[in-house]
Design a protein around this nucleic acid. Structure first.
Lengths: 335, 335
DNA sequence: GAGTATCGCAAAAACGGTTTGTCCAAGTCA
DNA sequence: TGACTTGGACAAACCGTTTTTGCGATACTC
């Protein structure tokens, strides 16, 4: 079942087998085909590990996702990351790589793993993992950019475009005081959105209202409630997570405000829960992001400079009832 | 940075370095410590791939999750699997393994990967992946059992216990005609639940009402609607997925039935969305399942027979408003 | 004091491939 | 016809570990 058996069976040397199967050396086409046939017949599968050792590559790409030390997800949107991960896994396989999951919490584990490349999802400022791997000369691609850092290879959505677009959407529907509810400004996503929001406010002569909340409905609820009780309460809310947006909807109801009549709500990103709540949302396609990141890191691993060092994945707005003029009627359980 | 450099620096042979670092051969404690110190100082990290080749192990455990060919999740409960995966990743790292994700769709990819063991989530009857790996002599652990198959190593929740328990719960609150809405009976989970449901019905002299639906709210909605319009409509529903249960809630509302007054609803498993909807649910702990599966497969890989060939992970019921006597008041958006 | 454990370490053989360098035969060119 | 190229195949080195075997030296036994 080794290359030697194949060589014996085909009556050639192992070199020829290797060449024939990998399309490398100079070799007669007839010989090549014969060897391939014999290998096929014998069900020969090259040992990945041996190949890695000789070839200097492990065939492994790491996918790092923020996690807390206790093993809980620190990430805010499980569905989003799952889809990203899933698409990345398949894209990696298609290119001959396997994706290994790695938790940021298990730093020690990184050392025991020989990775050809690394994808870091939503890196934070001075991201230690990125720094570590770059230091070792291992290609790193991030989805979302590393805050306060230029260069590097990344895949991202342009929230400098998406944010004004959704704010315009709300304004076009009558909003005059739009509040932003966001997560802690540690990822580029969060920072970009805040910056874009502030710029938009300046341009539209509106005073910024920014609130920060944990990535939970309850936090969205409480935060929104506080905002709604302020003197100059907002008439629209853009929430940086669907869960926050849902919390905002609940708060509106608790405060007796109709949606979208008295309060418009929009969220990012779109989700099943958001759909269920008829929430206007910015669609950020996790599959595309995952695939693009894998393509980029594979290019880097194989020594090709990727077509683009930075990939902007387009977003779009899905308008739903939470920002429509017509009041959002509660059609669900009876009151 | 190889073992040779360490050997040179410490003035010993590479054998001694290997032994010293792995605690293997007979070696003077002083020498061992010195070597360890030198290795530490040089920042030596043994090459995993070389180690694998020599040791005959890759250090990789596969985690297979059903996926459709187009890369979409075929799984019904993303959050559940994410938590399972996450816990498994960490548990694997703790044991010196890395978890590689693999899509069932990419069968070819499995061949290019040298896995020490495999975890298959929710295997189906005659699961090809399980068969393939067992054929190769690679340890396989499933979460959920392979239908129509005895033996094997698995981690599962006992739905033969959980199902009667939730049915009793509903009956104790007045339900006389409990319907079951389930996914296609291809996993042991689905099959067990159906069987347990039927047995319970027989024991309680109730006619079984089983409906099958796709794992989506809309399917739960439609299926429930049909049930509710039948002659002898159910007064309680046990849905085998939280998404189906949520669909059932919506259907109850659409039909003008109060929950739980006129219709009780319970689901499995528990979820954020379910909590939001005040849904009584069976808690199936994905983290525990993931950890148990890793522990078991690691034992098998390392040649230890695991403490138990089968692990039953306990479940529990979380009663919420959807099965309480007091009517479920809609406290959310205004009607 | 000869025989025998035991100890501490090193040399060398795997592990299963890839890659390099070499050789030979046949074809090409001047 | 001799020099040079080219195509085809092979042997051997190498990748960086682990593991087995072996060999002096020291300590123990009687």
């Amino acid at each position: 079942m080794g290359i030697r058996e194949v060589a014996d069976a085909a009556g050639v040397s192992i070199t020829t087998v290797s060449h024939a199967l990998n399309g490398k050396g100079r070799i007669n086409e007839r010989t090549r085909r014969r060897v391939q046939q014999v290998a096929e017949q014998l069900g020969y599968r090259p040992n990945t590990v041996a190949r890695s050792l000789a070839g200097g590559r492990s065939g492994l790409i790491g996918l790092a996702i923020a996690q807390t030390s206790d093993g809980e997800f620190a990430i805010s949107d499980i569905a989003f990351y799952s889809h990203l991960m899933n698409a990345a896994t398949i894209a990696a396989f298609d290119r001959g790589y396997a994706l290994v999951l790695a938790s940021g919490a298990q730093e020690a584990a990184w050392n025991n793993l020989w990775l050809d490349g690394l994808i870091v999802v939503d890196p934070i400022r001075d991201d230690p993992l990125c720094a570590e791997f770059r230091g070792r000369g291992i290609p790193v691609v991030t989805t979302g950019r590393i805050p306060e850092e230029d260069g590097g290879h990344w895949v991202d959505c342009n929230h400098f475009e998406a944010t004004p677009a959704i704010l315009d959407h709300l304004a076009a529907r009558g909003a005059r005081r739009i509040a932003l509810i966001g997560t802690a400004p540690i990822t580029s996503y969060s920072l970009d959105t805040r910056a874009a929001y502030q710029q938009w406010c300046k341009q539209h002569d509106q005073e910024p209202m920014i609130a920060v909340a944990r990535a939970e409905e309850s936090a969205g609820f409480e935060t929104t409630q506080k905002l709604l009780r302020r003197a100059g309460r907002p008439d629209a809310i853009y929430a940086m997570l669907d869960r926050l947006a849902i919390g905002a909807l609940l708060a509106a109801q608790a405060e007796g405000l109709s949606v979208p009549g008295q309060l418009q709500v929009a969220g990012c990103t779109d989700s099943d829960a958001g759909k269920r709540e008829h929430l206007t949302a910015i669609v950020v396609p996790p599959e595309q992001i995952g695939r693009a990141a894998v393509a980029m890191v594979a290019d880097l691993i194989e020594g090709r400079e990727p077509p683009e060092q930075h990939v902007w994945v387009p977003t779009r707005i899905v308008p739903r009832r939470s920002t429509r003029r017509k009041a959002l009627v509660r059609e669900r359980l009876p009151a």
